[in-house]
Design a protein around this nucleic acid. Structure first.
Lengths: 153, 153
DNA sequence: TTGTTTCCCATCTGATCCCATGTTATCCCA
DNA sequence: TGGGATAACATGGGATCAGATGGGAAACAA
């Protein structure tokens, strides 16, 4: 499970250390690294291990082949996703287009969200985090109101 | 079950002994430790074992993937949750941001709440207890109505 | 060649591990 | 039932190690 928030440095080469906790989540798969793509919902990146992408693929395969939404998701996620391999020290090199999308400068914020994580510019994230906490506080009851409908699916 | 209230010391390194009763609750899982995050509802911390977080994850996964409330909860809980492993003596090290959020100094109050627990600064907790008792006294008539509305689960 | 990317090594900081010690609760036996 | 022995728990400090980071050399592409 990806948990917690970590701010790590991005050097001049675009390298950033992936938090050790996150590395241990994806370790063991065939691809030793993470897969990252620009969010279509805001100026941040989304990422996860290969298993996450495979679960997305299963979801999308259930949609009609020429469903507009399916094509849009395929392009937005698979088309833009970059596999980033770890180097010997657990770092990855972020391509320029990802750095630009998230507006990253010298620092990057990793946000663990359970099955996936996000990558933000630290100051941009600070704003969003404050509003997320406020929203969660105002809607805290709704977390209880969603008791399982039957578990699966 | 997390039960009872315990005050333990927080040393200069941010280490605090987790009450032995609490340790035995989470022992046996894959992760030998507790997971703690800042409450978005006040100056205290919430915590539990990995099983608690997984139950939260199941609740959240029943919401729509891009539901605003879902993302807010994910960021407010998973994004802020820190896995804290026990050392050989049953202590965990609290990161600075958690210490700051709860205003912890030399002591911390563990409050067992069944499936989860809370961590307070002892004096803040005493104050909170006092005002909670006062509130209950002033509203004792309406307390009867609460079970009808919110008693669910 | 020139610029870019990948790989490797060095360093520093902070977290984790380990050992020692005090204190309290529990157990056992007189 | 009381007192002493013992074990469990809580705490403090120092040493060790892993993680994060910076720079440079080598491989590669243009």
């Amino acid at each position: 499970m990806f948990l917690s928030t970590t701010i790590n440095g991005v050097d001049a080469k675009g390298r950033v250390s992936v938090p050790a906790d996150f590395r241990s989540v994806v370790r063991g798969g065939v691809f030793d690294g993470i897969i990252v793509w620009p969010s279509f919902d805001g100026p941040y990146l989304e990422g996860g291990g290969q298993a996450l992408l495979e679960s997305y693929q299963r979801l999308i395969e259930d949609m009609d082949p020429y469903d507009e939404a399916r094509i849009a998701f395929e392009r937005a996620i698979f088309g833009a996703a970059k596999p980033l391999a770890f180097d010997a020290n657990g770092r990855v090199t972020l391509p320029k287009e990802l750095i630009d999308h998230a507006g990253l400068d010298a620092k990057a914020t990793f946000v663990g969200l359970g099955s996936r994580f996000e990558l933000w510019s630290p100051d941009v994230y600070a704003e969003h985090q404050a509003s997320a906490r406020a929203f969660a506080r105002e809607n805290k009851r709704s977390l209880r109101l969603v008791p399982r409908n039957g578990g699966g699916s």
